[in-house]
Design a protein around this nucleic acid. Structure first.
Lengths: 387, 387
DNA sequence: TCACATTAGTTCAGCTCCTAAACAAACTAA
DNA sequence: TTAGTTTGTTTAGGAGCTGAACTAATGTGA
């Protein structure tokens, strides 16, 4: 099941510096090779109809290097030749290459659902071949872990091709070792999710926070730009911050946690966190629904108020990082109308034109599959270096 | 004057992808070498009294690689042997190495002063050997460029050792090519500062925004942590955002520009940018002084109000990026007392304990030399890979 | 005192991967 | 048919890494 794929980004052993926090990262000849593998795969993945000569020109690699790398990739079953390209110009016709999109499978899991876990089996393209939704009503703690393991087992059985890895979007705070440090909704503390899933499957596992997974998903399969923030509005409010194509994790793995930032000066409702006026008190879907259920509730006013609070919180972030895009994800019925418009408006009112002039502010188009597709992208990134 | 130093971080030719924004970055054997040079220099720079064997163990490089790299560095005059280390254990005593701190000079320029440019000549340690302050009262446009060129010329003449590079902290927006896109205070638009200074000096030039230079300065010569924001409070308000030791530049080179984020809900004073309630209207030193000059002004209230506004703007940024440190730089008389306390307090009130619990919030200890020392660090980073 | 263990650092053979240049293959156009 | 163009491979040479053997310098203990 587990094929040897060495095209990981150049990450060798990482040593800690005694006392200081310095890291040393060795770089050998084989790191160059795997880096070049990633470049080639990335290029073939994003642009159709490239030949070895195209790759050589566009990547700046020598023809012989490209030939060698492509040869390795073909041997590994990751790249296929599609035949010669018809041409009107003189010269030998080029052999068109492509990622062998159906030659391997990827599994993605979304553990962020309130009532169920979602899992998909895809090809390298992210095309969904099979989908499983597993009810987890009320399950938490170890039950929830077992549910995830069973979901994974079901998907592995459906795989017709070698599975190159499993990506997981989990709620809560996830560290670099794939340990879920804290996920209150599932009753998880320090759950070694990567290790557990690796043990039962023998496959490479990549775990990330659900909002971060959604962000890489939007970047790769949506229209996402490399400097963006994606805000998930759901039971809670979370976000993923991407800068120059890289997800920010933060000093303590809590980057993106903006749900409990206090928005505005008026005190507002008391939040479970103990503060008053947290963003979630206006923006989380259960809160919006509660407000809308009040007698004489003005739907648009409530949604606008929520959007305004969001825009107010986003303004400093977008300014400080000079982001080029804000993407919202959540139930379109609530999020995409007055809420989004008010958020955009508040953000623009509170920042320089220079900051928001070239900025996009939009909904995701990936819908419910955003996180699970993001989980698939985690595998593409980690195993193939493709983003 | 210009010595060949090849220990730049692995950055070869960078190709653009046609259409898409993908980059390809070739990696050759010599990139590995220069990467290892940087690792070794970095280690020797930060930790005193290391031997080749220590480097090999701590960096995970083989002894022969370390010996080769060190040999190159000694040949280049960047590293010296200090003699054998007295030891009580058996075995051949180790030869202690050190960066040849007095063997080369670095020049740093700070062009952010309201009335003068500041320049320093330092050794590799950042110890200031010579300092020049040049009055620029009223100069702008080309005059200001010429003033910077003359300042540089004076410092070059004072150098007793080869100058490995010149770092510049400039106000305004600086792009990756060292072009100052826009610096209103100096009347600059699209000034190719790196090219101009390189032409007159023949030296490698590194240009960065002043707040960004200050941030790397704080990181290397202050107690700065790798995930921090540094806020400069001066004529205006600017900041530098560092994540995992890297400065964020933003999609359009404007990261850190938080001076014109609107803080709070009450409209506040009209700002030059056209909005009401910009952070600068409370926090910039001229505004603070104007408020303090009002009859019956309550000094502490005014400073607290300013700090409160700052904390309000910082809260979303610190949460979204999970930063571990906020550093303020500016006139201590105004910034270090109630203002800082109020900012810290507002930030903590508006974020989760999880976010601010492990966070530092403090003044810089580098005083007026912060930017100019940061400019020196730009050279250490760019030329030696030392951070 | 002298063999022995220990630690530091170098030399040497072999490997991977890169580059540059020559070469082979396949096509168009005159 | 021949020249020119473009694609892709082969070959020779070089840089840099690794592992093993080796030299060097010191303390330990019989």
């Amino acid at each position: 099941m587990h094929v040897p794929i060495t095209a990981t980004p150049p990450t060798n052993s990482i040593q800690r510096w005694p006392g200081t926090g310095l890291r040393g990262q060795r770089l050998g000849p084989s790191d160059a090779r795997s880096h070049h593998r990633s470049l080639v795969l990335q290029a073939l993945y994003r642009v159709q109809g490239l030949s070895r000569a195209d790759l050589s020109r566009d990547l700046g690699l020598s023809p012989v290097t490209v030939s060698g790398v492509v040869s390795d990739l073909v041997d590994d079953g990751l790249v296929v030749e599609l035949g010669t390209r018809p041409t009107s110009r003189p010269g030998k016709p080029a052999t068109v290459l492509d990622v062998n999109r159906d030659g391997h499978n990827i599994i993605g899991l979304d553990l962020s659902g309130a009532r169920s876990f979602l899992g998909v089996l895809t090809n390298l393209d992210g095309s969904v071949l099979h989908r499983v939704e597993q009810d987890i009503a009320g399950a938490d703690g170890n039950e929830a872990i077992v549910a995830a393991e069973m979901l994974l087992a079901q998907l592995i059985m459906r795989a017709q091709r070698p599975v190159i890895g499993v990506g997981v979007g989990s709620p809560g705070i996830v560290d670099d070792d794939g340990v879920v440090r804290s996920a209150p909704n599932l009753g998880w503390r320090d759950v070694p999710l990567r290790a557990r899933l690796a043990d039962v499957s023998g496959l490479p596992i990549a775990v990330a926070n659900d909002a971060n997974a959604a962000t890489v998903g939007e970047f790769t399969f949506g229209a996402g730009q490399p400097d963006m923030i994606l805000v998930r509005i759901d039971r809670g409010v979370g976000s993923g911050v991407m800068i120059d194509g890289r997800i920010m994790n933060g000093a303590r793995h809590s980057a993106g946690e903006i749900g409990h930032v206090v928005s505005g000066a008026d005190d507002g409702e008391l939040c479970v966190c103990g503060n008053r006026g947290c963003l979630e008190r206006w923006l989380a879907i259960p809160r919006i629904e509660a407000h809308l259920a009040e007698p004489e509730a003005q739907r648009d006013d409530i949604l606008r108020e929520a959007g305004d609070r969001l825009g107010t919180v986003l303004a400093p972030i977008v300014s400080a990082l000079n982001l080029s895009e804000v993407v919202l994800a959540g139930p379109a019925g609530y999020v995409s109308g007055p809420l989004l418009a008010a958020a955009r408006s508040a953000l623009c009112d509170r920042t320089l034109t220079d900051t928001h002039g070239h900025m996009q502010f939009r909904m995701t188009e990936l819908g419910h599959d955003l996180v699970v597709l993001g989980a698939v992208v985690l595998v593409l990134r980690g195993r193939l270096g493709v983003t």
